[in-house]
């Protein structure tokens, strides 16, 4: 019996001194990986799935064009194009691409990649109109954003 008594007298505290360190480590991880959204998405974005995905190599060369049905019902039901924070007409794309190209250095200008984030319910017509505008300004590298499909 005396054996048991002895055991009961030991301290049962879990050392918590390292807890802040662990939490800080997690905190730094999330701080570093966080990308704060630079623009509000005004159009519906249900990105389609695909199997053969390419990864983007350099994020600084990428500009985004969103296409989808406007979330606000007073904007109509037809799919619209969003760049930065606004809904625009296809004719505004050339100006946008030129602005984006100006942000890059001379060498990188031809490597600009336009990521098209297109809702899955959109019809091809508007996508083709956008591509036509991109051809006009010689921004020919595009990426159809897609999420990974798991099934086989």
């Amino acid at each position: 019996m005396s054996k048991f008594k002895k055991k009961a007298s030991t301290s049962q505290d879990i050392p918590t001194a390292s807890l802040p360190d662990i939490i800080f480590m997690l905190l730094f991880f999330f701080m570093v990986t966080t990308v704060l959204r630079e623009s509000d998405i005004l159009v519906e974005q249900k990105i389609p799935a695909a199997k053969e995905l390419n990864k983007l190599e350099r994020k600084s060369l990428v500009s985004y064009i969103y296409i989808g049905k406007p979330k606000q019902s007073d904007m109509g039901a037809e799919p619209r194009i969003q760049i930065n924070d606004r809904l625009v007409q296809p004719t505004d794309i050339q100006k946008f691409v030129n602005e984006e190209k100006d942000k890059l250095t001379e060498v990188e200008r031809d490597q600009i990649t336009m990521a098209l984030k297109v809702d899955r319910d959109v019809k091809m017509g508007i996508v083709v109109d956008v591509q036509q505008e991109l051809k006009e300004v010689n921004a020919r590298k595009i990426l159809y954003s897609a999420i990974k499909r798991i099934d086989r």
């Binding site: 802040p20 939490i23 800080f24 997690l26 905190l27 999330f30 701080m31 990986t33 966080t34 990308v35 704060l36 959204r37 695909a50 053969e52 995905l53 390419n54 990864k55 983007l56 994020k59 990428v62 990649t113 990521a115 098209l116 591509q131 991109l134 051809k135 006009e136 010689n138 020919r140 590298k141 595009i142 990426l143 159809y144 954003s145 897609a146 999420i147 990974k148």
Partner: peptide
């Protein structure tokens, strides 16, 4: 305090998913 910050960043994080099908458009 660290927990509070941690939770904030956990919630705001969108792990970047820039993947898709790359394509080179034909020239004009």
């Amino acid at each position: 305090i660290a927990f509070l910050l941690l939770i904030f960043f956990l919630v705001t994080t969108t792990i970047a998913s820039d993947k898709g099908i790359a394509l080179l458009l034909p020239p004009k």
